[in-house]
Design a protein around this nucleic acid. Structure first.
Lengths: 206, 206, 206, 206
DNA sequence: AATGAATGAGTATTCATTCAT
DNA sequence: CATGAATGAATACTCATTCAT
């Protein structure tokens, strides 16, 4: 009954995992609609179809723990979707382009999740949740370093470039929230070209 | 009346303007120290040397109005400092570099203001405050368009590039808040090179 | 059925009686560690090795009923241990001394029970639970009256003296909770002398 | 306007001191009527004539701080009333008797305060509030030591006797709460005799 | 007999805002 | 201008109790 919970995660059956996922989804909804500071347990419970905020506390020790779960879930999903496409590419340039395009796709298909993630990371400070972001930037920096070693990329600071790309992508996510008509494909193409030009070794063919 | 504002800001003569500026400064302090959701009137009053929150309500109709004032003040200062250095350059490429370097300088010298601005813009939604950000992006896009018309820049989407640059710079500001040892000069140099490479008209065929 | 109760208390055979005793013991632990107001069903269940508070409600109609059971259990145990030593003495003076010494021994060997009892009696009011305390004081008063009839004790108010002794002993119990190094033997000796002097018929004219 | 606040303390004028005293009084009422665990801010506010619990938090940082204030107030009053009568006596025996009688009087005239004090001290553990009690016991022990040095008292452990007396008196206070018809004068006389007999040097005349 | 989920009332505390002085 | 008191709603979180399984 609880063996196949990973597929039941989206269902309405009230298993522990199901309820937790339901509450996480409601938290994302609430943050996107109201903004982090107004995403109270009351609002989250309402969106989760719960009759009282007590149930949230029953499933999550803390508000902080709930938020940590939101962050972890979004990161996990993003890494699964983006990572698969990055490793499928064989050159560093190809991986960079794949990363940017897969990220943009992820923003388009999961933009509430992304918006919620951004708000939480900005507002929940001093705790652990920022760490994953740092972890992700390190992964990007490593990609850049590998490309530099392979002679595909010019000589730039990999960490700074990783931060730049990461936040440029975050910017797209934020646009998606406020400008409904944002064309993600355009952004993806432009960003891919922009960072290709900015990173490639000068003698490379485009 | 507004010419000697910066010197009156620190004085003890509590003109209407002075009090407002004092409260705005205290709000920035509070947001930076506590984060937007915990920057209450109580905390702001304490930092402004006021013994009651009533005075804040007396000078600002709303909390939203206070936040709007913070945003407006930071934008005005930034535009003054950055704008002066941008117009001093004669080519579009030079202006782009000047913009990036001046922005980085501004972040270094005004990074609490920047941090507060970012937090407010993320959290305070649905109202006017986002408009200035949009206005600034339009200015950047115009700079890009002018450079393209002059043949200095390659053919890219000016709006997307403006958003990308804007958020890449925001990323630096966010780093400054969480990583104390961030080297703004390094970021400035790297970003200038990055966006120069990403925007300039191709010198070699590609 | 109740003869081998103390050994069944630790066993894993969860007879009705065993479960109830287990919960009562956990309640005592919780009260001692957290104080009465924080000794919630959750804390009690955790200490009883139960995974849900529902089981407590299953075995006890009320929180009040559980507390009443705690009080009753402690009283029964105390009366058994102390009573045995009191009746073994043949004079009233001897019985008084035996009572004090046995009580002090009981506090030393059962001081969590005593602490829990005290906290419950103070906080749980308006119900029956205070009655046993009154009953015990009546027993003490009777001891004093018998001693007075026998000419062993001077003429004092037996009820007041019973209350005085009862609470003086309670004081020792409270000390044991807060001052870890309390010397029960010293207290026992001093109290025995004190109340012997305070109660015995005068040997010299006064 | 605020100069004579000590007389205005009981008045209905809304000075800071007056409001605090009013809330302290309401807290005592609530504890006596409902017991410590049910003496919530809501109940206290109701008894203080306040329309919301927010006002209590406005005047007291914490519930703990409010309770600490209750304890401090009751101790201060008791020390004033009892201390005056103790120092008026010239022998240690006289001081002991004066202490017991003054304490009993205080319990009679201030028994809600005493009841509240006892409940707080039992339930609020681990904090500072217990310290005054310890301080008071030290004072009693000092009285006993002085009497022993003067040859008025026999050789007993002054600390144990102080604890015994202190808790015997507490017992009277507790009786007053549950047995409405308790005769404080009887208790005072009996306790005075009891502890006189228990402490006096054997050759002393009574 | 036992579990875990659910409920709904209750907890202290914080908040922006108002108002009399 | 400024204060401090007051309001009332909102906050996260805990609780005893119930109930389906």
């Amino acid at each position: 009954m609880r063996a196949n919970f990973s597929s039941a995660e989206q269902s309405r059956s009230f298993t522990e995992q199901g309820r937790r996922a339901q509450i996480v989804a409601a938290a994302i909804e609430a943050i996107v609609e109201l903004g982090y500071p107004r995403a109270s347990f009351g609002q989250i419970a309402k969106r989760a179809g719960l009759s009282s905020t007590g149930m949230i506390s029953y499933h999550f020790k803390n508000k902080a723990e709930l938020m940590r779960q939101v962050v972890a879930d979004v990161y996990r999903t993003a890494e699964e979707l983006v990572g698969a496409r990055v490793v499928a590419a064989d050159t560093a340039r190809g991986q960079l382009r794949a990363f940017i395009e897969a990220s943009a796709d992820f923003y388009r298909t999961h933009h509430p999740q992304l918006r919620a993630l951004t708000e939480i990371l900005i507002n929940e400070r001093g705790g652990d949740p920022v760490l994953p972001h740092r972890h992700e930037i390190e992964g990007l920096a490593e990609l850049f370093r590998a490309g530099q070693r392979a002679g595909e990329f010019r000589d730039f600071d990999p960490h700074v470039m990783a931060v730049t790309l990461r936040h440029a992508l975050d910017g797209v996510a934020l646009r998606l929230g406020t400008e409904a008509d944002t064309d993600t494909d355009l952004y993806a193409r432009e960003l891919a070209t922009t960072f290709d030009l900015a990173t490639r070794a000068s003698q490379e063919k485009s």
